[in-house]
Amino acid sequence: MTNAGFETGSSSPWTRTGGSTVISTPVHSGSHSLQITPSASSTGECDQSVTLSPNTAYTLTAWVQGPYAYIGVTGGSGAVTVYVHGWYGQSNVVADDFTLG
């Protein structure tokens, strides 16, 4: 994954929806993390497209803090989307240090 710890100070190449931004505290490691801000009508999702090798097992891990925080993967056959989001009307979610290996 690219910029999996948000250490560039930017969310790129992650795609953000809602009020999500890169922050400097709290963090799990390094100096930046991603804050996802859900609203009453949005989960505040951030995602990144990743190409994987077919017929290979992968494990997604991340440090996530906040209520109703979700990480996951959609897609298959080599092209997947890794996502993180909160839940409608809940508090902010902070995510850092994604790995997919």
Rank of each mutant, 00 (worst) to 15 (best):
98 F>I: 04
84 V>Y: 00
65 Q>N: 13
18 G>E: 11
94 V>T: 13
98 F>P: 08
45 E>Q: 12
58 Y>K: 08
94 V>C: 00
23 I>M: 03
17 T>Q: 15
20 S>G: 11
78 G>F: 07
39 S>A: 14
21 T>A: 14
33 S>F: 12
24 S>L: 01
39 S>V: 12
15 T>N: 05
48 Q>I: 10
68 Y>Q: 14
73 V>P: 00
12 S>L: 07
12 S>V: 15
54 P>H: 05
50 V>Y: 05
79 A>S: 11
69 A>F: 02
68 Y>E: 10
35 Q>G: 01
24 S>V: 14
1 M>L: 14
76 G>H: 00
3 N>W: 01
79 A>Q: 12
38 P>V: 08
99 T>I: 04
2 T>Q: 08
58 Y>D: 08
91 S>T: 11
101 G>L: 13
76 G>A: 00
55 N>L: 08
89 G>A: 15
5 G>D: 11
97 D>E: 14
87 W>D: 11
66 G>Y: 02
82 V>M: 14
93 V>E: 06
26 P>H: 12
26 P>N: 10
98 F>Y: 09
31 S>T: 08
68 Y>M: 09
55 N>T: 09
34 L>T: 03
37 T>E: 02
38 P>L: 08
85 H>G: 07
37 T>L: 04
11 S>W: 10
76 G>P: 03
28 H>Q: 15
80 V>C: 07
79 A>R: 12
49 S>M: 11
27 V>T: 13
7 E>Q: 07
96 D>G: 13
12 S>I: 11
93 V>D: 08
33 S>C: 10
25 T>D: 15
49 S>F: 09
87 W>P: 02
85 H>T: 13
73 V>Y: 00
36 I>Y: 01
49 S>N: 08
10 S>F: 10
96 D>Y: 10
101 G>C: 14
22 V>Y: 06
19 G>P: 06
71 I>P: 02
87 W>V: 00
78 G>A: 10
72 G>W: 00
21 T>W: 01
78 G>Q: 06
9 G>E: 04
7 E>I: 09
86 G>D: 01
13 P>C: 14
35 Q>D: 00
42 S>T: 08
91 S>Q: 12
7 E>P: 07
27 V>C: 04
80 V>I: 15
66 G>N: 05
26 P>D: 06
6 F>T: 13
96 D>N: 11
72 G>L: 00
11 S>L: 14
31 S>R: 10
93 V>F: 13
58 Y>S: 11
47 D>Y: 10
95 A>V: 15
83 Y>F: 12
55 N>K: 12
75 G>V: 06
